[in-house]
C-alpha cells in the first residue's frame, strides 16, 4: 500500500507539474469567490446579510444529511442513494405523529412544546430502525458482491421509499404543521425569526454530539477503525456487522432530525424531495472530502450558501450550474475534497 501511495503521488505530480500548482489554483479560486462576495456585501449589506441567513439555514440542513452519506461511504464505500428518501420519510412520519397531537399552528402553546420535545427522539429512533432494516435487507447480503451491485439496490430502495410515501400520502405536497414560535425581528434591515435560529442551533448541537460520539466513544472508535481497514478491525475483535449497522443507525438519526427540522422550517414536503436533496447533500459530502465528518458539515454549509447566493445574485436557473461548476473546479484542484485526506484508495 505504501509503495502504491508514493507511486500515485509521483504520478500525480508529473501529470500536474507539482502539487503546489494545484494548491495555488485552489487558493486563487477561493480568493476570487471571497472578493466577489465581499464586493456584494459592501454594495448592499442588508441584502447580503439576509441571503447569508437563508444560506446558513439551508446549509445546516444539507449538512445533517451529508453527514449520513459521508459516514456510510466512509465505512462501506457505498453511495447510499436511499439516504435522501430516509430524510423525506422522516418528515412524513413527523407530520403524521404531530397529527396525533392537537397542536396549534401559527402560535406557540405548551402543547406545541411537548409535541416538539417528543417528536425529535421518536422520529429519529423510528428512522434509525428503518435504516438498519434497509441495510440488513438490501446491502448486507451484497457485501462481497461486485461493487456496483449495492449501488443499484440503493437506487432500488430509493424508489421503494418514494413509492411508500406516494402510496401513503399521494403525489401532492404534504403539509407539515407550523408549530414553532412565530417570533420574528428585523436587525439592521435583516429579517429573521426564531425559526432560523432554531434550525442553525439544532443542527450545530447535533453535529457536535456526533463529533463527540465518533471521537470519544468505543463504538465511534470501532467505526473509525472499520472505515480505515475492515479486515484489521475484524482481527482486533470488532464486530463488523454490528458496527456497520450502528453507522446506518446514526446516519438515520441525523437524517431523521434533518427531516423534522426541514418540515418545521419549510412546512411543506413531497415524496420526491429526498432524491434531489440527497444528491446535493452527497455532493456536499464529496466537496468536504468524503468520509470526513467535519468536511461534510462544512461542505453542506458551503453548498447551502452557494445555492442561496446564486439564487439571489445570479438567478435561479444558474444555481445548478454554479454549484456543480464549483464542485468540479474544487475537485480538479483538490482531488480529495476540501478536507479530504490525501490517501490512496484501498
Amino acid at each position: 500500500m505504501r509503495s502504491g501511495a508514493s507511486a500515485l503521488t509521483r504520478f500525480r505530480s508529473i501529470a500536474l507539474g507539482g502539487m503546489s500548482l494545484a494548491d495555488y489554483g485552489f487558493y486563487i479560486l477561493c480568493a476570487t469567490a471571497v472578493v466577489l462576495l465581499l464586493a456584494e456585501a459592501v454594495r448592499d449589506t442588508t441584502n447580503f446579510a439576509q441571503t447569508l441567513v437563508f444560506g446558513l439555514t439551508q446549509g445546516a440542513i444539507f449538512a445533517l444529511i451529508a453527514l449520513g452519506y459521508t459516514m456510510v461511504y466512509g465505512i462501506i464505500e457505498l453511495i447510499n442513494f436511499a439516504h435522501g428518501d430516509v430524510f423525506t420519510l422522516s418528515a412524513y412520519i413527523g407530520t403524521t405523529i404531530l397529527g396525533l397531537f392537537t397542536v396549534t399552528e401559527g402560535s406557540f402553546t405548551a402543547l406545541n412544546l411537548v409535541a416538539l420535545v417528543i417528536i425529535f427522539p421518536v422520529v429519529m429512533l423510528i428512522m434509525g430502525g428503518i435504516n438498519v432494516a434497509i441495510e440488513r435487507i438490501a446491502y448486507r447480503p451484497l457485501r462481497s458482491a461486485p461493487r456496483l451491485a449495492p449501488l443499484i439496490t440503493a437506487i432500488g430502495m430509493s424508489f421503494f421509499l418514494e413509492g411508500v410515501m406516494f402510496l401513503w400520502k399521494g403525489p401532492a405536497t404534504v403539509h407539515f404543521p407550523n408549530i414553532l414560535p412565530q417570533w420574528t425581528t428585523t436587525v439592521g434591515g435583516v429579517f429573521f425569526g426564531l425559526k432560523d435560529i432554531f434550525v442553525i442551533i439544532t443542527a450545530a448541537i447535533l453535529v457536535a454530539l456526533l463529533a463527540f460520539f465518533i471521537n470519544r466513544t468505543r463504538l465511534g472508535k470501532a467505526m473509525r477503525a472499520t472505515a480505515q481497514d475492515r479486515d484489521a478491525a475484524q482481527l482486533m475483535g470488532i464486530d463488523i456487522n454490528r458496527t456497520i449497522a450502528a453507522t446506518f443507525f446514526i446516519g438515520a438519526l441525523l437524517a431523521g432530525a434533518g427531516g423534522v427540522i426541514y418540515g418545521l422550517y419549510y412546512n411543506t414536503v413531497y415524496y420526491q424531495l429526498g432524491f434531489r436533496t440527497g444528491l446535493i447533500a452527497f455532493t456536499a459530502a464529496v466537496f468536504g472530502g468524503i468520509g470526513n465528518i467535519p468536511g461534510a458539515a462544512i461542505g453542506g454549509l458551503i453548498i447551502g450558501l452557494t445555492a442561496a447566493f446564486s439564487d439571489s445574485y445570479i438567478g435561479g436557473k444558474w444555481t445548478t450550474v454554479v454549484i456543480f461548476g464549483i464542485l468540479i473546479g474544487v475537485l480538479v484542484f483538490r482531488p480529495t475534497g476540501l478536507l479530504g485526506m490525501r490517501v490512496p484508495e484501498k
Binding site: I137, A138, I152, T153, I155, G156, M157, S158, F159, F160, L161, E162, G163, V164, F166, L167
Partner: peptide, 9 residues
C-alpha cells in the same frame, strides 16, 4: 414506484 424499486432490489 414500489414495484419498480422492489424489482431492482
Amino acid at each position: 414506484f414500489i414495484i419498480y424499486g422492489g424489482i431492482l432490489v
